[in-house]
Design a protein around this nucleic acid. Structure first.
Length: 735
DNA sequence: GAGTTTGAAACT
DNA sequence: CAGTTTCAAACTC
């Protein structure tokens, strides 16, 4: 038997590509040191695949990434898609969720498992640089590469997983071996990925979809391969995985359930998330028209994912790396535990997630969903995200993490009145993710909002506008301003902010951006460090409104005030009269909740903020300025109001880098990220240094100096950086 | 649900 | 850059 198998394998290898053979060899090595071997094997492959990959991935990644990163509008055609909200999310979610649960047991589960396995490997090797895994495939893709760097282990893993997903499906078909098969699949996938069959996998730009619906082409292709490959991979994986497998090399096929048992569990659990991913793609495949939409979703999702990746990283740092990885991907199932623990999570958290911008929103929404819904709901949102991001990565998982973190932050929200705001913002973002939410709340836009807000946002509200004259093509329109397409719930008239008018939307956005590059940037910037600055120092909260408000009658105590709405205190930048902002007065007085005050006090340190960023509790930062974080970025004043623009100018200086910075080194990336519009996440990341969002982190506990603290966090930061990297990749810097 | 208030966005 | 107008959200009744 073994001989036959070996022969078959060899044949397959030959037939397929030389690479695989190479890989196989290294795989055998894995036994000794799984990671290195694995990497080594991969490295050779890279050159060959690089071409394919670059194409497929680059295409894919670009499509998804650019739009997301830069900003919804950014990527022209693609971007437009990003705007779509609910529509995407809804479909994806259900499928995903259902699929997920099902997959766990079924062959799909295997697919999922595959990614997991990869992840596991990474986890296992966690001590080892995860990058290795990622390196192989990722390096090939320029875009991916950058991300990989940033994401490091996580992203790569996810990448692999994603890729694998497609192929895996095929492999799965072959294997079919129930649980045990999952392992095989995984290994197979890994091989395939490494092998660079991607081309086959991805036939189209829409490939992502294809990816998602992996099974089709690929699966059948390689049956033989799968059979052959799996073993090698499996073995490699198994070996990598520390656990029990020691032997598996060839046996993988045989391993079947055995080894799998334990492993499978892990994988499966993790896979649940993955499944989501897979599911999405599938759907996408189903509807190409939808594919675009999905892309949009994905884009956003990507963001989330990015964020999620960060969290994952963070979590990894704080937690066990291995676990983390799984979490990132899965966040939902197995990991949930972790996630949950991390974030008390809470429904409120959802609401709180303020992310305004698409990115932010998406992130926030994802987080929320993950938390609240956990498997199902979260899955859907994530799925969407993930699939697109294949390139993007597992962001989903991470997203969840972020969510969790954010959720932690929620404690904040509770304290802070602005919770509503947050909810709204979140809703925006959620638009995509939280289709459910949308559906839930809706009736009439305003009412919905109110409800949502009033409700505490537990249900992430989606933004809904009521524009009558602006055609939803001006910043007056919340949807447009948030980088989201108007949705059914919107009561707008003559709305052009729809996918149908994508070109118009993009053109308009460009115009607005040309006028004010920061027009779509988060309005709330984390100023944590800025606090130190004299100017901002006065303000209590770490986060501040980018431009500051100009309230004269509302006393900054109503939502008319953007600062108040954003849950941040007024700052020097504000020109408000009679400021009574409970989050922090321009004068420096902060009436805010004790927490807020604390934050403020801490804010000066910035370290706190850092803490916020930190994964563990981190996100609390968001809470501070829950709502608008999404957009909040430390950017210079868009409009040129120099003085105001940033609270945290000092910090911002670093942040400001061009939007495109991401390309910069990892370290830089973090900063840059903040610069970019990637709002919350970025902020968080970048913020780490500067803004700490609302340091309010419930506990001013962490005071570690922003940078210095990095030590552990540094790794985390890197992760965050990864997020920004995407933007860099984006072919079109709209901006 | 209609009307008013408010302040950002847009325009001049 | 300042002032004015437009706009839509937030708010009130």
């Amino acid at each position: 038997m073994t001989d036959d198998k070996d022969q078959d394998k060899e044949k397959a290898i030959v037939m397929d590509t030389p690479e695989r053979t190479q890989i196989a060899n290294p795989l055998s090595k894995f036994e000794d040191s799984p990671v290195f071997n694995y990497i080594n094997s991969l490295s050779p492959i890279k050159p060959v695949k690089s071409v394919h990959f670059t194409q497929t991935f680059s295409n894919i990644s670009f499509a998804s990434l650019p739009s997301v990163f830069t900003s919804p509008h950014v990527s022209s055609l693609k971007d437009s898609k990003f705007l779509r909200r609910h529509q995407f999310a809804d479909p994806s979610k259900p499928e995903l969720t259902s699929e997920d649960s099902k997959k766990a047991g079924t062959g799909e589960a295997n697919l999922i498992a595959a990614p997991n396995t990869l992840k596991q490997q990474t986890d296992i090797s966690s001590s080892n640089p995860i990058t290795e895994l990622s390196v192989v495939p990722l390096t090939q893709c320029s875009n991916l590469e950058s991300r990989k760097l940033s994401y490091e282990a996580v992203s790569p893993v996810t990448m692999n997983t994603l890729k694998l997903m497609g192929p895996s499906a095929s492999s799965v078909s072959f294997i079919n071996g129930p649980t045990s098969g999952s392992l095989r699949l995984e290994t197979e996938i890994g091989k395939e990925v490494s092998a660079c069959d991607w081309d086959s996998l991805i036939s189209d730009a829409s490939e992502l979809l294809n990816f998602d619906s992996p099974s089709d082409t690929v699966a059948y292709k390689d049956p033989g391969q799968s059979a052959l490959d799996p073993p090698s991979f499996n073995t490699s994986l198994m070996n990598a995985k520390p656990q029990a497998n020691g032997d598996n090399d060839n046996s993988l096929e045989n391993n079947d359930g055995l080894k799998g048992a334990a492993e499978n569990h892990l994988t499966i659990a993790s896979t649940s998330l993955n499944n989501f991913d897979v599911g999405e793609p599938v759907e996408d495949t189903d509807n190409e028209g939808g594919s675009n939409l999905y892309r949009g979703m994905r884009r956003r999702c990507l963001v989330f994912e990015m964020a999620g990746s960060r969290r994952k990283h963070f979590e990894d740092v704080s937690n066990g790396s291995s676990v983390i990885l799984s979490e990132s991907n899965q966040t939902v199932v197995p990991n949930e535990n972790k996630l949950l623990p991390l974030r008390t999570g809470n429904d409120s958290s959802k609401c709180k997630l303020p992310g305004i911008g698409l990115h932010l929103n998406a992130i926030a929404s994802n987080l929320v969903e993950h938390k609240a819904v956990k498997h199902e709901s979260s899955g859907s949102g994530r799925q969407l995200i993930i699939s697109p991001s294949s390139a993007a990565y597992s962001s989903v998982g991470p997203g969840q993490e972020l969510m969790t973190k954010l959720s932690d932050a929620p404690s904040f929200e509770n304290d802070v009145p602005s919770s509503q705001n947050v909810g709204e913002d979140a809703s925006n973002a959620l638009g995509f993710v939280g289709n459910d939410e949308l559906s839930q709340s809706q009736t009439s836009p305003r009412k919905k909002r109110r409800r949502v807000e009033s409700a505490g946002d537990s249900e992430a509200a989606c933004k809904r506008c009521n524009c009558k004259k602006s055609k939803c093509l001006k910043l007056y329109c919340e949807c447009f301003a948030a980088g989201v397409y108007c949705v059914e719930p919107c009561a707008c008239h003559e709305c052009f902010n729809k996918p149908i008018h994508e070109d118009t939307v993009l053109a308009t956005r460009k115009q607005i951006e040309s006028r004010n590059p920061l027009a779509f940037a988060p309005k709330v910037i984390k100023t944590s460090d800025s606090m130190q600055e004299d100017e901002s120092s006065n303000t209590p909260a770490s986060a501040r409104h980018k431009r500051g408000c100009n309230c004269k009658k509302s006393g900054c105590l109503k939502k008319y005030c953007e600062c108040y709405q954003g849950g941040v205190g007024c700052s020097i930048n504000c020109r408000c009269e009679g400021c009574k902002n409970t989050f922090g007065r321009k004068d420096g007085g902060s009436e805010m909740d004790p927490e807020v005050n604390e934050c403020e006090g801490n804010a000066s340190d910035g370290s706190l903020q850092m803490a916020l960023y930190n994964d563990s509790e981190p996100v609390s930062a968001t809470p501070a300025t829950p709502s608008r974080f999404g957009r909040s970025i430390s950017l210079p004043n868009s409009k040129g109001k120099p003085p105001r623009s940033f609270l945290a100018i000092g910090s911002s200086s670093a942040r400001f880098g061009k939007l495109n910075h991401f390309k910069g080194g990892l370290n830089k990336q973090l900063q840059t990220v903040g610069e970019n519009e990637i709002p919350d996440i970025l902020e968080d990341n970048s913020g780490s240094p500067i803004s700490g969002v609302k340091s309010c982190s419930p506990n001013s506990k962490r005071v570690s100096p922003p940078h210095s603290g990095m030590g552990q966090r540094s790794s985390r930061k890197l992760i965050l950086q990864s997020i920004p990297s995407f933007p860099c990749l984006t072919p079109n810097p709209k901006q």
